[in-house]
């Protein structure tokens, strides 16, 4: 299916790559506020932007991971509310995923990506909970009870839906890599 693309000029391929990246981020951002009955667990849905950050960072360095995380965190700020910012949580997710150096240590498959997403979703919710504890005047007990409730649902759902984002993007980037070589 991708064969005809091999005849494209490098600038055109580059433009297509950027287009696909923007498009997929936009799709993920628009999927965030959707609540379909089959996609929810106790009112919590998958964190699509986090899945995108993990997909991006798995084969990139720490700086690239952090940059993507912060950008998508700001997008999520725009979708909800800027305080407390989501950029810290997603930036940390980008850094940690890149630091895992998956190609070297972990086998390349959906299961390992799903596992990374599971862990990262739990970490992201914990970071947000710490931020909320510092900023807001809500009782701490209430915040951490809420954190426990949503971290698990969010982690399970995000890891289950991770291949939907990971598979197409990863295939595309592998194809690009082939052409470059």
């Amino acid at each position: 299916m991708l064969e005809p693309l091999k005849r494209w000029s490098p600038p055109a391929l580059n433009a297509l790559n950027w287009g696909l990246m923007f498009g997929s981020v936009l799709l993920c951002a628009m999927a965030m506020p959707v609540s379909l009955p089959s996609m929810e667990l106790t009112g919590v849905g998958p964190n699509w932007l986090l899945i995108w950050v993990v997909t991006w960072s798995v084969k990139r360095n720490i700086l690239q991971g952090a940059a993507a995380g912060i950008c998508l965190g700001w997008i999520q700020d725009g979708l909800t509310a800027p305080q407390p910012t989501h950029a810290i949580a997603l930036g940390l997710v980008g850094i940690l995923t890149a630091a895992l150096q998956k190609p070297k240590f972990i086998a390349e498959d959906f299961i390992s990506v799903a596992l990374i997403v599971f862990g990262m979703a739990a970490i992201a919710e914990t970071v947000t909970a710490v931020q909320v504890s510092l900023v807001s005047d809500r009782p701490l007990q209430e915040i951490w009870l809420h954190q426990r409730q949503i971290a698990l649902s969010s982690a399970i759902l995000s890891s289950l839906w991770a291949p939907v984002v990971y598979y197409p993007l990863n295939s595309w980037w592998q194809f690009l890599h082939q052409i470059e070589q």
């Binding site: 506020p33 999520q76 909800t80």
Partner: peptide, 13 residues
Amino acid sequence: IARSADNWWQQLT
């Protein structure tokens, strides 16, 4: 048309 885009806010669009 939409619910909150994260789990810490209770919003509607």
